[in-house]
Write a protein that binds this DNA or RNA. Structure first.
Length: 495
RNA sequence: GCCCCCAUCGUCUAGUGGCCUAGGACACCACCCUUUCAAGGUGGCGGCACGGGUUCGAAUCCCGUUGGGGGUGCCA
């Protein structure tokens, strides 16, 4: 057996359930995770820039930040961009902007995981030379076919190349050799201890056939390299813990981190929030007027609660009373109504002058700045230009009945709305592109663009006249546009 | 299929074997205040998934069942 320390347990964390020092009264703000005199903790928040920054990530960041700051530790930002194909620079900017908006400052410069790729590769190759890993030339299809032929119902790598002693070469990935027997102890601050059977873990890839390191390799290496003491992340990473422990062990680690897997945030159907079907992007909430302090406070009540009967609390209170080991282990549903209630509270509590400043700057940033180029030319007075943006302010646009009748009474209105809904659902959201696809839509009905856009305009703005449609749609955003089109559709059906 | 995780009002949570007739918040309902609407105040509705243990005593500990979720990628 090559795995010397595999039964070693993570001893740094003390579980809340097995201690008697967990009582909140008198113990507020103290944690047994970081004993006095011990070096300050080092945590990292490590999002991958593969989409809009969302509320789940925001909460994980918040918990990391609270834990680091209250213990005088370090909070690092590490961008896990090992999947080059799915990364985009604007997503990275989005991460910075969102964290700044929430007031979560990080230490030092962000680390880009891709920049460490050579070191990851080197470490992986080293693992191979020490016999911890082997090269494998199987494709996913081959593995699948073999499993099917063997009648194996459980998918996963079958160990075909395990003892072939293949050299590195084109088309060959490097796999970590997982022990066949024994178990390891996984200790998690918020989930307790579990004994994991090693036989259930397949030989996983650490270096792709392209030579690029996989997430698990890069992640385990960087955590070790940065001296991360507490890994606080989403529960979807729980199955990665044994792999990370195996890898760290092979790389000579003797001081495993404290693991803390925070529960998912789920939707009202209790599924993990997803970008596609749920409203998750932080910037959408920002644009709809949610105050960062309200969002931050609300996020803090998902999976944790301040002691006492008061859950709307200042950041300082969270900083004093937050305890990682008190985080709940069951998923929390994101309740927009409750967020709104929190927001109303914060809004009312603002000093008058600050309220004015913030309301005005919101209006300027979200509506006036983006609309200025098209409204400035279209009115004789300031109020007249400003009134062109009123549809933007309401969830349901104020509907002008004459406009409605004029645009919707004509035969293809319903069909146009349906076609627009389909065309706008997944397209590039720019004025030029919207113009183009709407023109195509119009020619499909053998109508001019002017005629075809009328039902769309009325559905979205409530009127037949107004600023140029496509610029308006861009500012409104896809979700709100689609929502208004659907609402108009429903209204049309009712007659 | 296999591995893992989870289970207190509709939702977020408090609860760490007796302070529990289960507390608070959001939502909802009623009333009060009020020129309207909010805000605020008062009250109400509403929950320990089920079944077995352990114990003098279980929301709390153990086992099972059921139900939900996550993972099962040369994604992260």
């Amino acid at each position: 057996m090559h795995l010397g320390g595999q039964r070693r347990s993570a001893t740094r964390g003390t579980r809340r359930r097995d201690g008697r020092n967990g009582a909140r009264g008198g113990g507020i703000g103290t944690t047994n995770l970081v004993p006095p005199m011990s070096p300050p903790p080092i945590v990292r928040f490590s999002p991958s820039p593969t989409g809009m920054f969302h509320v789940g990530g925001a909460r994980t960041a918040l918990f990391n930040w609270l834990f680091a700051r209250q213990n005088k530790g370090s909070f690092f930002l590490r961008v896990e961009d090992t999947d080059q194909a799915r990364n985009r620079p604007e997503w990275i900017e989005g991460i910075y902007a969102a964290l700044r908006w929430l007031g979560l400052d990080w230490d030092g410069e962000p680390v880009f995981q891709s920049a460490n790729a050579p070191r990851h590769r080197e470490a992986a190759v080293e693992l191979h030379s020490q016999g911890w890993a082997y090269y494998c030339g199987c494709t996913a299809e081959e593995v699948q076919a073999r499993n099917a032929a063997a009648g194996v119902k459980t998918p996963g790598y079958d160990g075909h190349c395990r003892d072939l002693d293949l050299d590195a070469g084109p088309g060959r990935a490097l796999r970590f050799r997982t022990p066949d027997h024994g178990s390891l102890r996984r200790t998690d601050v918020i989930r307790g201890t579990a004994e994991i059977e090693l036989s259930s873990i397949e030989d996983f890839v650490i270096l792709r056939a392209t030579g690029s390191p996989t997430f698990i390799m890069a992640n385990a290496f960087d955590d070790l390299d940065q001296g991360i003491t507490h890994v606080i992340r989403g529960e979807e990473h729980l199955p990665n813990v044994p792999k990370a422990m195996l890898l760290r062990d092979a790389m000579g680690d003797t001081d495993p981190p404290v693991w803390a897997h925070v529960p998912n945030i789920v939707n009202d159907k209790r599924q993990k929030l997803s970008k596609r079907r749920d409203k998750v992007a932080l910037e959408m909430y920002r644009d709809e007027g949610i105050l960062p302090e309200a969002m931050r406070n609300y996020l803090g009540t998902l999976g944790w609660a301040p002691p006492g009967d008061q859950e709307i609390v200042p950041l300082e209170t969270m900083l004093e009373t937050f305890r990682l080991e008190d985080v709940t282990s069951s998923p929390a549903a994101f309740d927009q109504k409750k967020l709104l209630a929190f927001n109303g509270h914060y809004l009312r509590a603002l000093p008058r002058e600050e309220f004015v400043d913030r309301a005005l700057s919101w209006y300027r940033r979200t509506v006036i700045d983006p609309m200025a180029p098209v409204i400035q030319e279209r009115g004789a007075t300031l109020p007249e230009t400003l009134s062109m943006t009123d549809f933007f302010l309401h969830d349901v646009p104020p509907m002008d009945l004459d406009s409605w009748d004029k645009a919707m009474r004509k035969a293809p209105a319903a069909a146009i709305l349906t076609a627009a809904l389909a065309a706008y659902a997944d397209c590039d959201w720019s004025a030029a592109h919207l113009h183009q696809i709407t023109e195509e839509l119009a020619s499909g009905f053998e109508l001019s663009l002017g005629k075809a856009q009328a039902p769309i305009r009325v559905a979205v703005t409530g009127r037949t006249v107004g600023p140029p449609l496509f610029e308006s749609l861009v500012v409104l955003g896809r979700e709100r546009t689609l929502g208004r089109l659907r609402r108009a559709q429903a209204r049309l059906e009712k007659g």
